[in-house]
């Protein structure tokens, strides 16, 4: 399987460990990642707020790059997934398409809407398939209770994301179970991580993050896993602030989705960039070892 790899900005910089883990897992599962050094940022939802049609055009250009190569797009960030998908949906409006086409045509760029945009979660659960993932598991994550944190843009708006039920999703839990972890269900799994207002009102952003972490923890989670590097920043890099807002100790390790899969497939913590996390992952990893030796 061959896909146009759209890592997004964060995974190329401060969330480098997500990129490392994605490459490791894709190599292990036979997914060929084709890189395009001309992909730009998706606008992260912020450009959309400032100028919607500009944001659509930027992403139509990104999509056209994959189309020209005849490839579907692989995303590893919920926000990238949301923005690229939203561009596809908005381009179905003839008035919008006319404006965007007028900007792209002089550049020799043609957007046709033929490339699918798929997040790694969907590729693993729908295209590779859970039995194939399971067959590659060398170190089942037995004993580790993980709260899947879907966040927002992988699911909503549901009619546009074309995904599973936005209110009762289960693909992430199914994946966690396939690699031997015990999925933990909690209300906060489909809630927001708070990140979009981290710069607008940090205390509110962290209060929102804190609620979801606390919710997962109080349902017994040893760790959480997220499909989005922005959620990861909010839940991991700012977890100290979140703990302060909810006035409770949290200490919940936050994994990127491919890190959880990579661990089960036999990657070392270093290969997955786990030492780059702000909240140490050792306690959660110890759970696996304890169960394995028991």
């Amino acid at each position: 399987m061959k896909l146009a790899y759209y890592p997004g900005c964060v995974a190329q910089e401060s969330g480098k460990e997500l990129d490392m883990a994605t490459r490791w897992v894709c190599r292990a599962l036979g997914i060929e990642l084709v890189e395009f050094p001309n992909f730009s940022c998706c606008g992260s939802g912020f450009v959309d707020e400032a100028n919607e049609v500009l944001n659509i055009a930027i992403n139509a250009r990104n999509l056209a790059i994959a189309e020209r190569a005849g490839l579907d797009v692989l995303t590893i960030c919920s926000t990238c997934q949301g923005m690229l998908t939203l561009a596809k949906v908005r381009m179905q409006d003839p008035a919008v398409k006319a404006r965007v086409d007028a900007a792209l045509r002089p550049l020799g760029i043609e957007y046709r809407g033929t490339a699918n945009v798929k997040h790694l979660l969907r590729v693993l659960t729908e295209d590779i398939g859970l039995p194939a993932v399971k067959a590659k598991v060398r170190r089942p994550l037995q004993g580790m209770k993980v709260g899947a944190f879907y966040g927002c843009h992988l699911l909503r708006p549901a009619d546009e994301m074309g995904s599973e039920s936005a209110e009762e999703p289960h693909a992430f839990e199914d994946l966690l179970a396939a690699v031997g972890a015990t999925p933990v269900e909690y209300r906060g799994r489909v809630m927001c991580c708070g990140f979009p207002i981290q710069f607008v009102k940090p205390s509110t952003a962290s209060a929102i993050a804190g609620r979801q972490i606390l919710d997962a923890k109080s349902h017994g989670a040893d760790a959480m896993a997220t499909p989005c590097p922005l959620c990861h920043l909010s839940l991991d890099a700012y977890q100290n602030k979140a703990a302060k807002e909810v006035q409770k100790p949290l200490d919940v390790p936050i994994f990127h989705l491919p890190q959880v899969v990579g661990l089960a497939l036999g990657a070392s913590p270093e290969e997955l960039g786990l030492p780059r996390h702000l909240v140490p992952t050792d306690a959660a990893l110890a759970k696996i070892r304890t169960a394995a030796s028991a």
Binding site: V10, C41, G43, S44, F46, V47, A50, V200
Partner: peptide, 21 residues
Amino acid sequence: LGSRHAIGFKENLKGQGLLNE
């Protein structure tokens, strides 16, 4: 702060095409 962030983000991409955090 919110509108400055949205505008700032839009202007940010004009530099390299990727986010400069």
